[in-house]
C-alpha cells in the first residue's frame, strides 16, 4: 500500500469552551482529489490548519508524506490556499509571488521565471508589475492561487477554493485543480458545496461537529448510503403529485423543488407503482429516472439539520 500523503490519527483540537476537532482520523492516498466536506463550523478549517502546522493538535498525530511533521517542515512540497485570502496590498504582483515562494524555500532565481509563466497562463501577464491593490478581486484570487502552486508542490491544500469566485473564475480554478491531478499531484480541498465535491472528488470525508461521519471513495459512499432514489421532473405544475409524495407506503422521503423532486423509495416499494400513480394523478412528467442519490442528499441525511447548526465558536 502506498504511503498516504496526509494521515491524521485521532486528532483532537479544543478551543476555550468547545472541541473543534474530535478524534478525527483520515488518510489521503497520493494522486487523488480528496474532499473534506462538512457544514459551516464543522472543523474543516481547523483540521486543515493542523495539517499545515498553523495549529498544534491537542491530541493525536499529523503525518505528511509519511513523516511525523506538519506542513511547515514540508513547505517546499506543500501548497496551501487559506480560506481567508489575502496578499500584501501594496506590493507588486510579481514581488508577492516571489516572496511567498522564497518563504517556502524556493530560490529567487527559480521563483521569478515560474511566476511569470503562471501569470501568463492565467492571463495576468500585463499585471505583473502592478500593485496587488490595483487588481480586481477575481485577479487577486488568481494571484493567490498561483502563490499556492508556484513552487510545484506535490500536495495542494485548498480551503474553500471556490468561495467568492464568479462562474468564470470557478471554471479556471477547477481546470487548474484537474490539471494538477493529471500531473500526479494530490489535492485536498474543503467545501460545503456538494455539487462541486461530487464532480471533482475521488475520495472524501464528511465531518460534522469535529467528528467524522463517513469517508471513502465517492462511489463506495454512494453505494452504502444510497438507498433507492428516484428523480422526477415535471412539465408544469407538480401540485397534483403531492398525495403520491406523502404516501409513506411508497415514498420514504421527498425533496420537492417544485419543478423537480428527489424521492427516496420506502422499503419494498416499487418505482413502477409510483409512475402509475403519478400518471393517474394527471401531472405531466418530463423526467422519470431511477438513480444514485446526489452527494447533497447523502450529506443532508448524514449531517442532519441538528448537526448543521454550529456550536458557538468563540474563536473562529
Amino acid at each position: 500500500m502506498l504511503t498516504p500523503m496526509v494521515a491524521l490519527e485521532r486528532v483532537t483540537k479544543r478551543f476555550a469552551g468547545h472541541t473543534a476537532v474530535d478524534g478525527l482520523s483520515l488518510s489521503v492516498p497520493p494522486g487523488v482529489i480528496f474532499g473534506l466536506l462538512g457544514p459551516n463550523g464543522a472543523g474543516k478549517t481547523t483540521t486543515i490548519r493542523m495539517i499545515m502546522d498553523i495549529l498544534e493538535p491537542d491530541e493525536g498525530t499529523v503525518r505528511l508524506f509519511g513523516q511525523e511533521f506538519g506542513g511547515r517542515s514540508h513547505s517546499a512540497r506543500a501548497g496551501y490556499l487559506p480560506e481567508e485570502r489575502g496578499l500584501y496590498p501594496r506590493m507588486r504582483v510579481l514581488d508577492v509571488l516571489v516572496f511567498l515562494a522564497e518563504v517556502k524555500g524556493v530560490s529567487r532565481r527559480v521563483a521569478g521565471p515560474k511566476a511569470d509563466e503562471w501569470l501568463d497562463r492565467l492571463g495576468l501577464g500585463d499585471w505583473r508589475l502592478r500593485r496587488v491593490n490595483e487588481l480586481s478581486k477575481g485577479m487577486q484570487q488568481k494571484v493567490q492561487f498561483i502563490s499556492t502552486v508556484l513552487h510545484d508542490p506535490d500536495l495542494v491544500i485548498l480551503d474553500e477554493p471556490f468561495l467568492g469566485l464568479d462562474p468564470v473564475n470557478t471554471q479556471v480554478v477547477k481546470d487548474a485543480v484537474v490539471e494538477l491531478r493529471r500531473r500526479g499531484k494530490t489535492i485536498v480541498f474543503s467545501t460545503h458545496i456538494m455539487e462541486q465535491a461530487e464532480k471533482l472528488c475521488d475520495e472524501l470525508c464528511i465531518i460534522a461537529r469535529g467528528k467524522k461521519l463517513v469517508d471513502g471513495t465517492l462511489s463506495d459512499i454512494k453505494r452504502t448510503h444510497g438507498g433507492h432514489h428516484l428523480v422526477v421532473g415535471f412539465d408544469g405544475s407538480a401540485g397534483a403529485a403531492q398525495p403520491v409524495f406523502l404516501d409513506r407506503q411508497l415514498v420514504k422521503k421527498a425533496d420537492d423543488y417544485g419543478q423537480y423532486a428527489e424521492l427516496e423509495l420506502a422499503a419494498g416499494a416499487d418505482a413502477q407503482m409510483i409512475l402509475q400513480r403519478l400518471v393517474a394523478s394527471g401531472v405531466r412528467l418530463s423526467r422519470f429516472e431511477l438513480m444514485e442519490p446526489s452527494l447533497n442528499r447523502i450529506f443532508i441525511d448524514l449531517v442532519g439539520s441538528e448537526a448543521a447548526r454550529p456550536e458557538a465558536r468563540p474563536d473562529a
Binding site: 490548519r49 513547505s75 487559506p82 496578499l87 500584501y88
Partner: peptide, 17 residues
C-alpha cells in the same frame, strides 16, 4: 497588523515559525 488584517500571515505561518 497588515499581515494579520490581510490574512497573509496564515500562509506565512504555514511556511515559517
Amino acid at each position: 497588523l497588515e499581515e494579520k488584517t490581510t490574512r497573509v500571515v496564515e500562509v506565512l505561518v504555514s511556511s515559517l515559525r
